[in-house]
Design a protein around this nucleic acid. Structure first.
Ligand SMILES: [Mn+2]
Ligand SMILES: [Mn+2]
Ligand SMILES: [Zn+2]
Ligand SMILES: [Zn+2]
Lengths: 149, 149
DNA sequence: TCGCAATTGATAATGATTATCAATGATAGC
DNA sequence: GCTATCATTGATAATCATTATCAATTGCGA
């Protein structure tokens, strides 16, 4: 387990305790998967990954806990049109994504030119901005090679 | 009907003819609603708006034609987590939005600092970027007044 | 005007997510 | 450590937006 994963896992568990919620094995395992996954897993990904260790686990439990972890501010949801949402427990704050429309992979790009966009929008609209989402859709290098584009 | 609405309506109808598709009254009416709406209507909004003039129209027809108009490149979809997608037929190209999480209103902000983000992402990731979405979520001035925030 | 492929309306199917509820289990207090 | 309590789980039904299916209708070219 990487250093970041340990850190994120610990942060999530701490938030749990602070909120007076129970440290269920399933719940902790879901947190660990979120903390370790670099690839933005879906609920079903997490569900299938946990079936080895929890043969009787229910998808409902994964949904419930993802919802909880989100509400604790310890994961972000990437909602996509026409397919299941994906989650990021390693960067639990709004950040841009690149989605490959061929294979479904999702990456976290580094994006320098992003800073004062929120400020600009706030000033122009009078909205109180709570969050944002910035997603790019395209074809990843591997899929470009395959389709010969 | 505004000048822009006329222009957008005509553009959509032209694409229809070019593609050898039929100019159904329902289809043309859906296009007109999309061309006239400033407020990013949902399928159900459009459906309800058309019931006066087409008492027997089916939601399926609206879905089908929205899908078609999108595939013609004449409207963009704003897909939202947990609620129905909204559509923009006035700016049929990717552009940022501000969503009020209280009342659901969606605006098109002017956003100068946006230009070379796509180029930057392309360079950094090797993806072939096809489109993007940039949505800000917050509370609009009217709702801020109501909730006394 | 005719014929036919495209389109419509009705309806069923899908797929992701949420709600419900009885059984189970974590944990605080003894 | 034992127990009582209340949160949580697993199973399952319900919801909701969207898609698929199909017979009946209709736009439109010949
Ligand atoms: Mn991410
Ligand atoms: Mn718009
Ligand atoms: Zn790919
Ligand atoms: Zn509002």
């Amino acid at each position: 387990m990487s250093l970041l994963a340990k850190k994120r896992s610990a942060a999530m568990a701490a938030k749990l305790k602070d909120s007076g919620l129970k440290a269920t094995p399933q719940r902790l395992a879901i947190m660990r998967v979120l903390a370790e996954s670099k690839g933005h897993p879906s609920v079903d990904d997490i569900y299938r990954r946990l079936q080895r260790r929890f043969p009787g686990i229910s998808p409902a439990t994964v949904y419930r806990n993802i919802m909880l972890i989100k509400s604790l501010g310890e994961a972000v949801e990437i909602s996509l049109a026409g397919s299941a949402s994906r989650y990021d427990g390693r960067k639990p704050y709004p950040h841009p994504h690149i989605v490959c429309v061929e294979c479904g992979n999702i990456l976290d790009p580094e994006l320098a030119s992003l800073g004062d966009m929120t400020r600009e929008v706030t000033a122009a609209s009078g909205f109180e901005i709570k969050s944002f989402r910035l997603d790019f859709f395209g074809v990843c290098p591997a899929c470009r090679k395959k389709s010969g584009s």
